[in-house]
Computed example of a mutant assay.
Amino acid sequence: MHVFMDTAPGGEPGREDGELLVRAAMERVTEGAPPLPDLVPVAVVQGRRRRSRARAAVGAGAVAVVALGTLGAALPMWGGGGEPVREGSVASSTVSRAPSPLRTPVHIEPSPGELSMADLPAAERARQEQFQQQAAALLDELLPQAFGPVRPVDLAVDRYQGGKDGPVFPLTFSVRPKAAPGEAHDPPCRSVPEKHLRCKEVTTPDGITVRSVSVSENGRKEARTVTDTVLTFERGRSRVTLSVEGDDEAMVSAPVTSERLLAVVQDKRFLELVAYADAKPMEPKEHVVRGG
């Protein structure tokens, strides 16, 4: 069940490192070749990976349990238009479920000068942490068991991590307000076989056009590859990104196919989370990267 605190957003971390991440990843992926605009979505993922390593960096203490069914009686659900919805919602169909355990967040130290969720006002931080708990529980249910458990990362609301006692699989679930019309547009969806890059677009039965981009990297020491996959689509006033990354140190791809991710973005409970984040943004407006 997905319930949220209706606290006005504020104090979003003004992270302005997107352009640097894209530039660094583009140089890595396109070494020896002219830059290709098709690489941008996965380049963002690969750039994040360099800063998202965290193995078992968790706080001490027992895992708490929250009675989400009780909260559901007092707090509204949010539908596609950002208005409260109760009847016929996921909340009404899951009240009888057992309470979901709170997932201890993975801790990642911010880079020098970088803000994290700890810098948010208390009410906004609580709202974002609650959203992360809801998202992590749902993604854990929808993704393969081998990927889990899915846990939130305390650096930013769009950051999560899968894997237990082995490879670490960074996961991004972002609902970011779109740039103003005319400031940004998607490049053509083209596959680049020589760069091990595959791009395809699919329109779901609900009319959502989803772009899927996968890229594979060769290992330096072994003849193995690790594959990252990122799905993007627009919903309301936001651009949604759902991506999974492999463990580049262990050279193990995440056990998630693009088809499985596509199934996730079609789940009505996932779209309900998207609708809430679109109506009550938790991330800064998307940053436009100009030039190659």
Rank of each mutant, 00 (worst) to 15 (best):
E201S: 09
E201M: 06
V202Q: 05
V202G: 08
V202H: 06
V202D: 00
V202L: 04
T204G: 02
T204C: 00
P205A: 05
P205M: 08
D206E: 10
D206M: 12
I208M: 05
T209Y: 03
T209W: 00
T209L: 03
T209Q: 04
V210I: 10
V210Y: 05
V210Q: 02
V210F: 02
S212E: 07
S212G: 07
S212H: 09
V213N: 01
V213C: 09
V213M: 06
S214V: 01
V215E: 04
V215P: 01
V215C: 11
S216P: 00
S216G: 06
E217R: 14
N218T: 15
R220H: 14
R220L: 13
R220D: 13
R220P: 11
R220M: 14
K221C: 08
K221S: 14
E222G: 12
A223L: 15
R224T: 13
R224V: 15
R224Y: 05
R224E: 08
T225E: 03
V226C: 05
V226R: 06
V226F: 10
V226P: 03
T227Q: 01
T227A: 06
T227K: 01
D228P: 08
T229P: 07
T229A: 05
V230T: 09
V230Y: 07
V230A: 12
V230M: 10
V230E: 04
L231V: 00
T232S: 12
T232F: 06
T232P: 03
